[in-house]
Design a protein around this nucleic acid. Sequence first.
DNA 1: CATTTTATGTCAGCTGTGTTGACATTCCAA
DNA 2: TTGGAATGTCAACACAGCTGACATAAAATG
Lengths: 165, 165
Amino acid sequence: MAENNGGEGLLFLTDEQLRKGIEAMFFAYRGFTADPDRILSSLDYGRAHHRAVHFVHRSPGTTVGNLLTILGVTKQSLNRVLRSLFDDGLVEARVGKKDKRERHLYLTEKGAALERSLSDAQRVRMRTAYRAAGPQAVQGFRTVLEAMMDPELRRQYQGLKETPQ
Amino acid sequence: MAENNGGEGLLFLTDEQLRKGIEAMFFAYRGFTADPDRILSSLDYGRAHHRAVHFVHRSPGTTVGNLLTILGVTKQSLNRVLRSLFDDGLVEARVGKKDKRERHLYLTEKGAALERSLSDAQRVRMRTAYRAAGPQAVQGFRTVLEAMMDPELRRQYQGLKETPQ
DNA sequence: CATTTTATGTCAGCTGTGTTGACATTCCAA
DNA sequence: TTGGAATGTCAACACAGCTGACATAAAATG
């Protein structure tokens, strides 16, 4: 709709355009993680801790199994991260009432504070970029990113919209 | 132009919108790297090798120092990667004519073949996403990503446009 | 010419985060 | 009740970041 970009179009699908897109992803992702990374490294944490804290904040009471699906890592890898978050009192696990094998995860006050500090840093950059680019660009940004996800991950992503619990 | 998104606008800057953008970056980047990762792991390489090969292909004759700047890693880390690429005959280093301290990097035929296989895989996904999203969305995508980069990295990124050599 | 700076490489060692494999616990269903 | 499925833990390994220390050769500077 609108914008026929030159009759036969498809100029945006040339290898050169695609390469630019690939490099844009690479450089932008560096920026995207830079601010949280600084905070994390001062605490001897890494991105894995950030991701765990983010999704526990996002879906309080989620189980380890859910987190495994969302994060796409092995349970052993996640477990190492969770253990350090437990030990440092950032995340709390409560045994499931129905199924006692499950552990439901919650941020402590301290964990919530870290989450806030990380996501504040990340949101500042995001907000600045969004504002500079404008709402239409933002919509395009989200559209392309969604199309780039694996279908399984896209479902996870979209599912999170409606599943605050 | 068009789409005034609700008078006072700025609805796209709410924390909830920003969080969606953050998660979109996270899930999309997973998709973005998934296909090359599969090829790489079958060769006992990792993303670090992919990045090196990509930028050597992109700027043949680039020096180790240039690569360090672009990749943003330490020389020790890059050196480990480059050494394995030399040993496996994928990348070739030629001593500089003007400055003999510099080593200029080139892909061998074998290295170019790997680069092609990696970037083909990545481009397929990119092209599919671009086509599904349309040219206007792609433009917005690129605009937001550029705005998200660190200024230094943005210069690197934009500089690559004009500097095939 | 002597000195300093630059570009590069190498060795050792540490960290974070991914992996497999083996095993324990809990739940549920045959 | 027994066996499989889901879940979590411990051990060990690989990769790719990192810092620090040191070496060498070339270039730039005094």
